[in-house]
Every structure is written in structure tokens, then in C-alpha cells.
């Protein structure tokens, strides 16, 4: 009997020795909820976009969405096991910290507060006129809903850059309201300060 037990432990030890080639720390997993959203006017006329309250060229207007997060819980995956938790076949350790959202965004809508043009009077949904910039490519705003990894983050604040690709016909003062609906039914919203688009 003793020999069998020793044999089993030896086999487990050998497997662990072979499989666990590096000693990676156990990852800490945080969970968060969306706390608030803030919207800023962005001037994209220069090399890099800047938050601005000065008049912005119509063709270079954008909105920077700041999504604030609040940590809800911390989970630690320390479980007893004969085998190392990180059964890595190479020596690349994953991130020490993983942050996942509790809720996902199920709707994202941008409405114009002022008359945008004849087609879009005040209060119209102008989400289709904006696009999200991601890795030097403009993607549809609906992608935020389809791909939650866009706003999955490892920091406590996430920024999304939305750019107006169809400028208004007239140079006037404009303001936009952003509404986000979360999977738990919560609705959070923000508005940009009225800005002159020249």
C-alpha cells in the first residue's frame, strides 16, 4: 500500500516537474461595474487629438468618452492542487491582474441636442454619423456592443474616441448627448459642452 501511495505521489510530482516550467504568480481577478460616463469635445485637427472647449473645425470633431469603473470584488484563485495552477508549456506568464466587467454595454446612442442639419433636427439619433477609432481604423459604434473586449480594460478608467465623419452643413454651436444602456438595465448618460464647430 505504501509503495502504491509513494508511486502515485511520485507520478504527480514528475508531471508537475515536466509541465510547470515556470513559477508564475497566481493572477488576481477583479470585477468592476460601470460607475459613470463623461463626454468631452475633441479637436482632431492636429497630429494628436486634444480635448478642447475652443471652436473646432467641423471635419475634425470628435467626442472622448470617459467610462468610470468601480471595483466590486476581488477573487483569488488559490486552490489546493497537486499540480501547479499554471501548467504552462512555455515560460510566458499571463497578466498578474485581470479586470472583468460585471455588465456589458447593450446600447450606445448619440443624439444631437441642437439642429444638426435638415435631416437631423434636435433630438435626432446621430449615432450613424460617428465612428469609433480603434487601432487607426474607424469602426461602427455598434461594434462596442458586439465586441465587449473594446471596453474591457486593465485600468479603472476607459476612454473611447468617437469621431464625427459626416460634418454638419453649417458652422454653429453643437452639443451631443450619449446614452449607454447596460446589461443590468441601468442607463448612464453624459452630454458634451456646447461647442462651436466652424
Amino acid at each position: 500500500m505504501k509503495k502504491k501511495v509513494t508511486f502515485i505521489f511520485l507520478v504527480a510530482f514528475c508531471i508537475q516537474l515536466i509541465v510547470a516550467c515556470c513559477n508564475c504568480p497566481e493572477p488576481t481577478i477583479y470585477q468592476y461595474k460601470f460607475e459613470y460616463v463623461a463626454a468631452f469635445n475633441v479637436d482632431n485637427s492636429k497630429a494628436n487629438p486634444i480635448i478642447s472647449e475652443s471652436p473646432i473645425p467641423r471635419k475634425a470633431y470628435g467626442i472622448k468618452l470617459q467610462i468610470g469603473l468601480r471595483q466590486l470584488a476581488m477573487r483569488n484563485h488559490n486552490k489546493f492542487s497537486l499540480l501547479n495552477q499554471v501548467c504552462a508549456f512555455d515560460c510566458f506568464c499571463g497578466p498578474d491582474t485581470t479586470i472583468t466587467p460585471r455588465d456589458t454595454i447593450t446600447a450606445l446612442k448619440i443624439t444631437t441636442v441642437a439642429n444638426f442639419n435638415d435631416q437631423y433636427p434636435a433630438g435626432s439619433d446621430v449615432s450613424g454619423l460617428f465612428k469609433l477609432l480603434r487601432s487607426d481604423t474607424y469602426i461602427a459604434i455598434d461594434s462596442v456592443i458586439a465586441k465587449p473586449d473594446i471596453y474591457f480594460t486593465r485600468t479603472d478608467t476607459k476612454f473611447l474616441e468617437l469621431y464625427l465623419l459626416t460634418p454638419p452643413d453649417r458652422a454653429e454651436k453643437y452639443s451631443f448627448k450619449i446614452d449607454m444602456v447596460l446589461s443590468n438595465g441601468t442607463q448612464i448618460s453624459a452630454s458634451t459642452k456646447p461647442i462651436d464647430l466652424e
Binding site: 482632431n44 475634425a60 465623419l165
Partner: peptide
Amino acid sequence: AQLKQKGTNELVT
């Protein structure tokens, strides 16, 4: 080359 047009949101690759 990734180019950012001056004065607009245009990006050209």
C-alpha cells in the same frame, strides 16, 4: 505609412 490629414478626421493608410 499611416497619415493623419491636417484639419480633418481623415486617416490614410
